[in-house]
Amino acid sequence: MTRVLIVDDEAAILRLVAAVLDRGGFTPVAVSSARAALAEADRAAPDAAVIDLGLPDMDGVELVAALRQRMTGPLIVLTAREATSDKIAALDLGADDYVTKPFEGDELLARLRAALRRAGRAIAADGVLRHGALAIDPARHDLRLGGERVTLTPREFAVMEALIAAGGRLVTHADLLRRVWGPAHVGDSDYLRVVVRALRLKLEADPSAPTLIRNEPGIGYRLGEV
């Protein structure tokens, strides 16, 4: 059984999420404070966790970082806040995905299942990373779409490598910029827009309706589900 830790100080939400997870075939472990969550994670590391960012006893983003130290499974963040800054901070500190309230149970289950699938992905023996029809061989600077080799510039290749390595997980703009352009260019989102524009022209069937490289405005990029 897959044990999923739920942290939320609202009893009604806690009960609802537990019921949703139970319906989805998971074993929910519900706690109502950050302290209890850390104690539970120390006692028996859960396979995944659903964390509300608005907790009374600790900043939710800090809890994400603390839980990331204790477990490798997916961390899904629940937030009622409009601002993107919390989501970005949580993602950069180790959260796998976020769901904004109000959400539907099926949406949460889909996100959780996708994250668990990614976490359970075996790394191919040949060092080639795959995502659907995409296959990338970082050692040989080789990206193939449906077996066809696609010629990419070094920046384009580095962005695709980061996205495929994340395997569909949301990667923040700042994270991509840091990895591909370096720490001095974390704020230069213009660079990223231009490279993604070029990648879509090379990889998407319809670059104006992308299915491969998806964007969460103000937050980051992820590869579309396959």
């Binding site: 009604a12 019921a19 009622a80 309230k101 109000p102």
Partner: peptide, 14 residues
Amino acid sequence: FRTPLTVLTGEVAA
């Protein structure tokens, strides 16, 4: 507002 709406959405769906 969002907390009760979340609960409503979830409970109605279930």
